[in-house]
Design a protein around this nucleic acid. Structure first.
Lengths: 150, 150
DNA sequence: TTTTAGAATTAGAATGATTCTAAAATATTG
DNA sequence: CAATATTTTAGAATCATTCTAATTCTAAAA
């Protein structure tokens, strides 16, 4: 599911284009665009090295450092999100719709689950007075259909 | 806040003792007990190396590998929890009461927030049919009181 | 008790993930 | 077009975690 809320600011001169949803404005260089497109074209929550391998098929010269660099810029621009489910590699996700992550502890698959009802965290937990919420990461761990029916 | 729900099974012979809440039963060896006690005595969500440094003041000979080993055993026994908030080191937490983590993006502090109302994730998100939930990790990111009043 | 098998612990090496560095390439601004 | 800033790169460095193999410890069996 591609984001529908992104605001794009094309620049008339050159090949450049800038995009940001929230966060910092980001220059969409060719590499950044490719990393972003690879991520938009999948829903399997790839790691940095997964993305590196996939982008290499289009831009064989790209380096892993550049992939990390692009992922960090896209993240601070709010175009993608980092996902932290387990010890080890971070995963990335270009689904900007409100959703949570279901993580199968047996096969490792990560599935996006979208809202069924309005959800306000402040109703359910006593957050300290004066805290400002910017975002929320919800990970639900368990066993997926396929794994539990084995 | 120390857990109140833990079930302890002291063994009459020897110095041994076993404990488990859910998960696998774990032998509470001296090192495991120390790692557990260090974690129970704090609410600052230390990393493995933080814990290593603190346990070293009581058991100078302990190795980092043993700390990781203890943390893994205590985690699979359900006595502690791993917390994944950011890229980088995992954090650990001995608070077994139902709670979520508030993470200040400015100072890095992690604060436990306890329930104000009953919360059922299945009411709020469309999880795929047939998935079985075993646990849930909720991280709320933002700015803490101290940081936002600067 | 001794024996024994299994589990825990260790130091250090190995691996894996990420970040850093400095130079080269590319883009933007004046 | 020249000057300046940003991006990209390869490779090194660092950090986090896991592995390995030898050793020590524990608990159960004899």
């Amino acid at each position: 599911m591609p984001p529908s809320t992104s605001r794009s600011i094309p620049k008339p001169t050159g090949l450049e284009c800038r995009m940001a949803v929230l966060g910092t404005d980001v220059r969409l260089t060719p590499h950044r665009r490719e990393v972003f497109e690879v991520l938009q074209g999948t829903n399997d929550h790839p790691t940095a090295t997964d993305i590196f391998d996939r982008v290499k098929t289009r831009s064989p010269g790209i380096s892993l450092a550049t992939v990390y660099n692009c992922l960090d810029h896209l993240t601070s621009a709010g175009l993608i999100k980092q996902v932290h489910l387990e010890r080890g590699q971070s995963r990335y996700c270009a689904n900007l719709h409100e959703h949570v992550h279901f993580h199968c502890e047996t096969c490792g698959k990560v599935i996006d689950a979208h809202p069924a009802a309005e959800f306000d965290p402040a109703k359910f937990w006593n957050l300290p007075k004066g805290t400002k919420i910017t975002r929320m990461d919800i990970a639900i761990h368990g066993t997926c259909e396929a794994c539990s029916s084995k």
